[in-house]
Design a protein around this nucleic acid. Structure first.
Lengths: 127, 127
DNA sequence: CAAACAGTTGAACAATCATTCAACTGTTTG
DNA sequence: CAAACAGTTGAATGATTGTTCAACTGTTTG
């Protein structure tokens, strides 16, 4: 190496905020949950992060409904509703029950109600 | 009109599931929350629906951190972190405090902890 | 059996979004 | 004052995603 200090042009970690610095970063990484769990958590919220799916859940909170009724109530095509129900099914947020030509959906989990309830509290809390 | 019944080709609402049908759809629309609130709710979850932002919140749950420390702890560029902090700021999920060159971020709301906690319960509940 | 209907599915398209890159502001320090 | 650093921002790019469309499965009924 030469005596001249070649300055970090694009190096990412020239950070040395002497304040908390790496003791903080280390503490963070130690208590940070498992990587897989973080992805699952984000995926869970991702499913709830769409107004159509939230409306479906709200509707199912009132009563068990078939795809047709959902499409009617939400003014959407059956196809669009079905696609979103698939996401909700995979996230285990809804349960389904076949009866003849119809498929009836309902909320799967009590926790979902609680999560939404708490989010509403958060939203109404500010301003 | 002719005597021939032209059949609904693409009409969306030829649904007449005689089971719950429109009594159900009507009940749903009556109890469905305000349209704006639904969007706010979805937007709230949308912010949480990204693993980077969840990791940031988890990190801030441990301790107040500056952008630099966050970037270090999460192995990301300061720019990327800053962009996501902006989203978290707008959703009022984080608070910030300037101190010299640094900007320190922390969790804004107790509800956020509760929502994440409940989501984790939901995830660990199944299988 | 054939027509009608409930529902699902895959491809296609448009819109949204996370990250990168480069340029910028503002503060500290030699 | 100039260099160095923390942080922000806007444009560009690549990936993800919601809806539409058309074709399909399976059930009911005349």
């Amino acid at each position: 190496m030469s005596s001249e200090r070649i300055i970090t042009e694009e190096k990412q970690f020239d950070c040395h905020c002497e304040v908390h610095s790496h003791e903080g970063a280390a503490a963070v990484q130690a208590t940070m949950p498992n990587e897989d769990l973080l992805y699952d958590l984000a995926d869970f919220f991702k499913v709830l992060g769409d107004s159509t799916r939230v409306r479906i859940l709200m509707a199912l909170d009132v009563s068990e409904l078939c795809v047709c009724d959902l499409a009617d109530a939400l003014s959407m095509t059956k196809s669009a509703v079905s696609h979103q129900l698939r996401a909700l099914r995979q996230a285990r947020l809804v349960r389904y029950r076949k009866e003849g030509k119809n498929v009836f959906y309902s909320l799967d989990d009590e926790h979902v109600r609680a999560v939404i309830e708490m989010a509403l509290v958060h939203l109404q809390h500010e301003d």
